[in-house]
Design a protein around this nucleic acid. Sequence first.
DNA 1: TATTGTTATACTCTATAACTATA
DNA 2: TATAGTTATAGAGTATAACAATA
Lengths: 165, 165
Amino acid sequence: MTVTPDRLTGDLGWGLAVVFRAYVKAADAATEGMPSGHRGYQVLCAAARDEPGSQAALAQRLGIDRTVMTYLLDDLEAANLVERQPDLADRRSRRVVATAHGREVLAERDARLARAEQHLLAGLTPSEQASFRTLLASLAAHANDLDPVLTACEAVEDITASSAP
Amino acid sequence: MTVTPDRLTGDLGWGLAVVFRAYVKAADAATEGMPSGHRGYQVLCAAARDEPGSQAALAQRLGIDRTVMTYLLDDLEAANLVERQPDLADRRSRRVVATAHGREVLAERDARLARAEQHLLAGLTPSEQASFRTLLASLAAHANDLDPVLTACEAVEDITASSAP
DNA sequence: TATTGTTATACTCTATAACTATA
DNA sequence: TATAGTTATAGAGTATAACAATA
């Protein structure tokens, strides 16, 4: 394979698109049968492991629109994977929590997801895989800082801590 | 390591989605006014720097469908950025080449793209940026190799083993 | 007035199949 | 028959605005 040096610029977008598409394909296959594929899995995953937050907070954290979150939660709730609980402190808001059944399904799918991800990363050595994950997480945190969206795991605490603008 | 182990799994998809979305946003801004945004840029870029290939070869290299390539090339050709030349060896096929004007526009946009990418990668040190690009390119090459087959071979085997086509 | 969640609409992207012209 | 390219259609994804309930 011949690589020209001036290819450096465009290859970032090419690489991101190719890898992201491959991930979505693999993740959708691993989450087949779940309400909204890999997106439903992501929502369920966030609802299960984080402090129960509002729909808007969840949507912001995952980088999807809050109107889309409504549809995703409708499907997940119909499948008894998550619940919308009223927030006693703010009656407009609803807290999203995973049901016991949701946690079971999540644990079962986690193994499949891990295999799919491993297959995607199989071209790298274990230490390279670790490096890639670290760099990607750092980039993602930075990218979320750039946009009005702020969705990093620890950054969410910063938001909710200073939620009085 | 106080992080729950199952969080490692989901963060790959989260990171890829966040970074890819941020790239598309930045790239679309940098290629504003071009026929099909960052996708048109990618096609023009590939047409300008590679050996002129068929539309199908170009589509496979960029990871997009050949029916989509038709629309993209229609727009790019209408803007006089690329040309469809007949392939003398195979009259079914058409070779995609960038016009002189297309190369000018490409050079002009390359600088903007580079700035946009730099902004996206600004959270990493220069050496980390180089590592990320290298790892990503390696991953993308690997993913493209098994994309035509199926990306999640092992995970898919489990599913197809208990389901009828 | 601002915000949370919902709904409706439209626009984009993608996936699929059918068609032609060549091989 | 198979392949390169085109076209048409339907589906999913996304963005936007409007609305009701609450702050």
